[in-house]
Design a protein around this nucleic acid. Structure first.
Length: 404
RNA sequence: GGACGGUUACCCAAGUGGACAACGGGGGCUGACUGUAAAUCAGCUGGCUGGCGCCUUCGGAGGUUCGAAUCCUUCACCGUCCA
């Protein structure tokens, strides 16, 4: 059992408020409430909302889920909120553009997928899945006026993303302001003790929610604002539309490999936000990197293993690791690869295109020029090479095809 | 309702009659090197073709012109300002 202070450290791991005094206040309040909970035996209610804007979850979505899981490990209750109402407005937080609004059907469908995938991480016994249209849809216009009267336009315009759009004379729709109010109302309605979110949620959680809860006569919730997980490019936030995401619906080999492809400099963030490591493990990892006693390659392998095992278990993660070492470190041919049944008159170009090893015949020609195609380990320079059953075709470093 | 601006390849973005398959950046791909699919460096990045070359693409449709991403008409969508 962790001490209260250890719990606070564990739960605040990966938090990023962008402001030391907020961080301190939140840690202090969290500590108080943990003490209280230990005394009374009442588990804390931990809220995190998800706007179901797509069906494919990726590693970036799981950062907050992992935090929720940590609370569960310490015995607390998770409120997994599907933003069935808020998603229809579209959260302006992480965009500097207006987001498209979804229909109720789309939202409900996506929401179910979210919850399903979330249970790969969360403990179902300590999780309540709720939909926020259940309460938000019932608010009246005068309720909204009351709630809105707590905020000034200036407060909203002080937010960087609104501020930028204002300066550039880009439109800021009135309803975009409601988003923060709705999220705050969620926290009030759910009587949340703690609210988790990404750093783009700082305003919604720390300002809007706390203010509204106080106004409505509730104790303001504690915000834990987590850093943003960058994508495989190591620069910008992970996002499917940017193509730098690591999807959850894949396989262990792919996930392991994708983590290996992140830049070295992104390793600490990934360790903090994407693993289930305890503070001690995390510290030794970070110290190892900083002091050069941990080899960057080994560090990344550790990281890839740690992340993959969360979703696929240790066994599959281990197998993925073996395969990676075999293929990329030793340069061997992997055991498992797609196969192709040779036919009379087949030629290299046709096969590569039809098997999707290349997108066009022109690309195959380019690959040939760039010495990117190998047959049984020998670089191929001529498209008319003889192909025999049993041979292995290789495109680049990672695409293989066995001819049978 | 009025005035003005925009829509270019996967993304951002330049190009305002010919040298444009279209500058540049990002991403992606390939190679070299390495410590890994990191970093760095180099090349490639619409399709077809062995190659000369041909075909399709700059929001849609029409037109002017020997020739259009570029000019005109019209439609659609996005935006700003005035009311």
């Amino acid at each position: 059992m962790m001490t209260i202070d250890e719990q606070v450290e564990y739960l605040m791991q990966g938090a990023d408020f962008g402001d030391a005094s907020i961080a301190e206040t939140m840690a202090l309040e969290l500590r108080e409430r943990l003490v209280e909970s230990a005394k009374t035996g009442r588990p804390l209610r931990v809220y995190c909302g998800y706007d179901p804007t797509s069906t494919d979850l990726h590693l970036g979505h799981t950062v907050t889920m992992r935090k929720l899981r940590q609370f569960q490990e310490l015995g607390h209750q998770v409120l997994f909120v599907i933003g069935s109402f808020t998603a229809m407005i579209g959260d302006p937080s992480d965009k500097d553009k207006l987001r498209k609004q979804l229909t109720h059907e789309e939202v409900m469908k996506n929401g179910r997928t979210y919850a399903e995938q979330a249970f790969r991480i969360l403990d179902p016994d300590k999780t309540e899945v709720v939909y926020n249209h259940d309460w938000l849809a019932k608010l009246t216009f005068s309720d909204l006026i009351d709630l809105a009267s707590n905020f000034t336009v200036q407060q909203f315009l002080a937010r960087e993303n609104f501020h930028k759009r204002f300066d550039k004379s880009e439109p800021i729709y009135l309803h975009e302001f409601f988003y923060a109010i709705m999220q705050g109302y969620d926290a009030y309605h759910l009587e949340a003790d703690v609210q988790i979110g990404g750093s783009d949620q700082l305003f919604n959680i720390i300002t809007a929610a706390r203010k509204l809860m106080a106004f409505l006569g509730k104790r303001p919730n504690i915000g834990i604002v987590l850093g943003i997980l960058p994508g495989t490019d190591g620069e910008v936030r992970m996002s499917k539309s940017l193509g730098n995401h690591i999807p959850l619906n894949t396989n262990a080999e792919d996930m392991y490999g994708k983590v290996m492809s992140i830049p070295d400099k992104a390793m600490p963030v990934y360790a903090r936000l994407a693993t289930q490591w305890t503070p001690e493990v995390l510290h030794s990892f970070e110290n190892g990197l900083a002091s050069n006693t941990l080899h960057p390659r080994d560090a990344k392998m550790k990281l890839a293993f740690g992340i993959t095992s969360v979703f696929y278990g240790d066994a599959a993660a281990g197998a993925a690791q073996d395969q990676f070492v075999n293929t990329f470190q030793k340069g061997n041919v992997p055991d498992d690869m797609p196969e192709y049944q040779l036919k009379e008159g087949d030629n290299l170009i046709d096969i590569l295109v039809s098997e999707k090893m290349a997108t066009s015949r022109g690309e195959v020609r380019r690959l040939l020029e760039q010495q990117g195609i190998k047959l049984d380990g020998e670089t191929v320079s001529d498209a008319s090479v003889e192909l025999k059953p049993g041979a292995v075709l290789q495109v680049g470093k990672r695409r293989f095809l066995r001819l049978i």
